[in-house]
Each structure stands twice: as structure tokens, then as C-alpha cells.
Simulated scan of single mutants.
Amino acid sequence: MLVKCPRCHKFNRLPLDRLSEKPVCGACKESLLTSPIDADQVSFQEILKASKLPVIVDFWAPWCGPCKMFAPTFAASAKINGEKLLYVKLDTEANPSIGQKFNIRSIPTLAIFKDGAEVERISGALPPAQLEKLISTHLSSL
């Protein structure tokens, strides 16, 4: 899978089985996990299977105003917790079968997965404090 570095914006080839090994950019050595990973239909399923870290997914669409407003909050949280939790964004318009499979009825929807199984879901654009509370609840249960 190709992952874009949050600092230098170069693409890095990252084997999915190395997601929990705190991968760094080959060019600038910045952590590749301090920014959300854009997933598609194929990589999303592989990420859920391969990740030893809990995964938080932002199901969104490009035409959704609340999704656009929430994106910076999600990205800021990834900067803080990106090596403890894997942040993934999934465009439900470009990948409708994933939205259907996970019964996504409104966006943005956040879902947290542990060991490939969904453990919590919440819909709506969360304020930063509420997102951090949700994340800390799941990180404390590890």
C-alpha cells in the first residue's frame, strides 16, 4: 500500500503487516502514522485484517459539509495519537460497497475496530474534546 508522508508528502510503499511497527518515511524519517491513511475497498479490508493497532475509521464523502468541517479535527487527533491508533479515512461515495457492508447510513460516521471487529460507532462531526474522550476510552482498555 502507498502511504503519503504527512511532512514531505512523498509516497512510501508500506506492507500492511508492518502497520504496527511505527513505520517512518524513507525520505524525511517522519512517522507515517501521524496523518490519516486514505483507504479504498481493497486496502480497507486488508488494514482491518493486518493491523495489530486499534483502527478508527472516518466514513465520509467529498460533498458532505460536516465531513469537511470534521476532517481537520480527525487529522489533528492523528498527530497526537497516530502511533497508538491507526487513523483511516474511507470515502463512501468512491467505495459504496464498503458503506453498504458496514451499514453506514449517515456521514460522517466514526467506527473503531479492534482485531478486525467493530467495537464502537458514532455518527456526526465530533468536537475535538469529544473525539479525544472517545479515543482515550478505547486506548485505556488496551
Rank of each mutant, 00 (worst) to 15 (best):
L2Y: 01
K4W: 07
P6A: 07
R7H: 15
C8D: 15
L16V: 07
D17C: 02
R18Y: 11
R18W: 06
S20C: 08
K22M: 07
P23F: 09
V24H: 15
C25H: 10
G26C: 11
A27V: 09
L32M: 10
L33M: 14
T34E: 12
S35P: 00
P36E: 04
A39W: 11
A39N: 09
D40N: 13
Q41K: 09
V42N: 04
V42F: 02
F44K: 01
Q45M: 07
I47R: 05
L48T: 05
K49M: 00
S51H: 07
S51Q: 10
K52C: 00
K52G: 12
K52H: 15
L53K: 15
P54D: 14
V57L: 12
F59Y: 15
W60S: 06
W60I: 07
W60E: 01
W63M: 08
C64N: 08
G65K: 08
G65D: 07
C67P: 06
C67L: 15
K68D: 00
M69L: 14
M69A: 15
A71I: 01
F74T: 05
A75Y: 09
S77P: 02
A78T: 04
K79S: 15
I80K: 15
I80G: 05
N81K: 14
N81F: 15
L86C: 08
L86H: 04
K89Y: 04
K89H: 02
D91Q: 08
T92D: 03
T92L: 10
A94P: 00
P96N: 02
I104P: 05
S106N: 10
S106A: 12
I112R: 10
F113D: 04
F113T: 06
F113P: 06
G116I: 10
G116E: 01
E118M: 14
E118N: 11
V119F: 09
V119T: 13
E120S: 11
I122A: 02
I122Q: 13
S123F: 10
S123N: 09
G124P: 09
G124V: 02
A125K: 05
L126M: 06
L126H: 03
Q130C: 02
Q130Y: 03
L131H: 11
L131T: 03
E132P: 08
L134A: 13
I135P: 09
S136M: 08
